[in-house]
Design a binder for these strands. Structure first.
Length: 404
RNA sequence: GCCAAGGUGGCGGAACGGCUACGCAAUCGCCUGCAGAGCGAUUCCAUUCCGGUUCGAAUCCGGACCUUGGCUCCA
């Protein structure tokens, strides 16, 4: 029985699907710059979750959005002298390449925000009809947070509607903890040629609305899982819930799963801090993709993982050892019997059942490898052990059996 | 300020009421034309602090202290 940590309840819950097909929506990358390996921690987690669900016999429909419009994307394009479409097109391509390099299965659908303007408009209109949205004096349309009672339920923040200010001691500055957010942003000069002429006026969608539009379009108003990094919890996911509630009367997802941050030298890895590594950074340094993946899997997704080059080297070494062992097994013809495969597979499954504990799963694989390198299995056992590795690899996707 | 997570050997990290993993590093062997890899063995008074519960606590309860994350850029 698979148990998953639901951010909504802040506890592990047994997974029970809503229907025949498990619907999964993931907040994918913002395609205006290279994704960093912290981003990929989330996508790797999600990939393994999907593979595991399929192994468990579920049918899965998986949607991963590509955010191809937002303030930063527009300003980056302008800075680099490109059109928004050139910029996001290029980074979408790179993202898909990186996914492939990490042996991640593609989602069933990769919708990008700018393809769903009519759906976005429809939801905003619904929100206005239902009294959850209003036109601002600047011509933009805003969500009226005071109308939504569930505001703050996911982030567990005591969010109050209005313009109330709280003091943030750390920065010694005042900041509004809450305000209404834009659903539709009216046109400004800085937007250049990025706008749509619509019945809501000339402008572009706000940051959160595209997820409401696309998840509803492909998975309906109520589906199984919504996945993202913890930094999406507030405000993004909180806003998505508010939007869906305002438009359709319910929280769109039953489980909200959030991957914790990847740290570098004890600090959060993020684009804003500038302390991040992209896939190509690491590949250019000579590290292999599967070692990166191995390292990212070495810790349960609900715990913070500190990225170090030492850890990366170590991961590569472990991987190499497994590859050697698998190679050796292909020609094994010793006299030793290896019969506890079933127990090993069971333990592996138990580790993943417990909130997808990939760190523990890897450890089980390491222990198996250690054990085998000490004996000389006979032909039949060798085959059995290879089968076990195949099973592990079908879920972890470490490329042990890729045709070379 | 509010809400969370966590503090285990030189380092990384399991265990989560009793038998104190494992990996790296270090030392010594075996293997090897050399090197690497591998295998075996050995070493290290490790559970932040103070109370409490218990026959017994790293593990449970209270209280300190420290670190990290979130509080409208973010996976």
């Amino acid at each position: 029985m698979l148990r998953l940590f639901n951010s909504l309840k802040r506890e592990k819950e047994t997974f029970r699907p809503l229907g025949e097909v498990v619907g999964i929506y993931t907040c994918g990358p913002s395609v205006y710059q290279y994704a960093h390996i912290g981003n990929f921690r989330t996508f790797i987690f999600e990939d393994i979750l999907v593979r595991y669900l399929k192994f468990k016999g579920y049918q899965v429909k998986r949607v991963m959005n590509l955010t191809d419009i937002e303030d930063k994307a527009i300003s980056t394009a302008r800075k680099e002298g490109k059109t928004l479409w050139d910029l996001t097109g290029y980074h979408t391509k790179v993202f898909f390449e990186d996914m492939k390099t990490l042996n991640l299965l593609p989602a069933d659908v990769f919708p990008k925000a700018t393809d769903y303007i009519p759906d976005i408009i429809a939801i905003i209109k619904k929100l206005m009809e239902n009294g959850y949205a209003y036109s601002g004096t600047d011509g933009s349309i805003y969500y009226d947070v005071s109308k939504f009672r569930g505001w703050g339920e996911l982030s567990h923040l005591k969010l109050k509607a209005g313009k109330k200010k709280i003091k943030r001691d750390e920065w010694g500055e005042e900041s509004a903890i809450i305000s209404d957010f834009a659903l539709w942003k009216s046109y400004e000069k800085e937007d250049g040629d990025v706008f749509w002429e619509t019945e809501l006026g000339k402008g572009r969608p706000g940051w959160h609305i595209e997820c409401s539009a696309m998840c509803t379009k492909y998975l309906g108003t109520r589906f199984d899982m919504h996945i993202g990094g913890v930094d999406n919890i507030f405000p993004h996911h909180e806003a998505v819930i508010a939007q869906n509630f305002g438009a359709f009367g319910e929280n769109p997802s039953r489980y909200w799963l959030h991957c914790r941050h990847l740290m570098v030298d004890g600090k959060k890895m993020s684009k804003s801090a500038g302390n991040f590594y992209t896939m190509r950074d690491l590949l250019d340094m000579g590290y292999e993709p599967m070692a990166i993946k191995y390292l990212l899997l070495s810790m349960n997704y609900r715990r913070r993982l500190n990225f170090t080059f030492e850890g990366l080297v170590d991961a590569g070494r472990k991987l190499e050892k497994m590859r050697n062992t698998i190679e050796m097994l292909k020609f094994s013809n010793g006299g030793d019997d290896a019969e506890n495969m079933r127990k090993t597979m069971k333990n592996f499954e138990r580790a993943l059942d417990d909130n997808l504990n990939t760190g523990k799963a890897l450890k089980i694989m390491e222990e198996l490898t250690d054990e085998i390198s000490r004996i000389n299995p006979d032909r039949e056992s060798g085959e059995k052990i290879l089968g076990t590795y195949r099973f592990f690899d079908s879920i972890l996707g470490l490329g042990f059996f890729k045709p070379s």
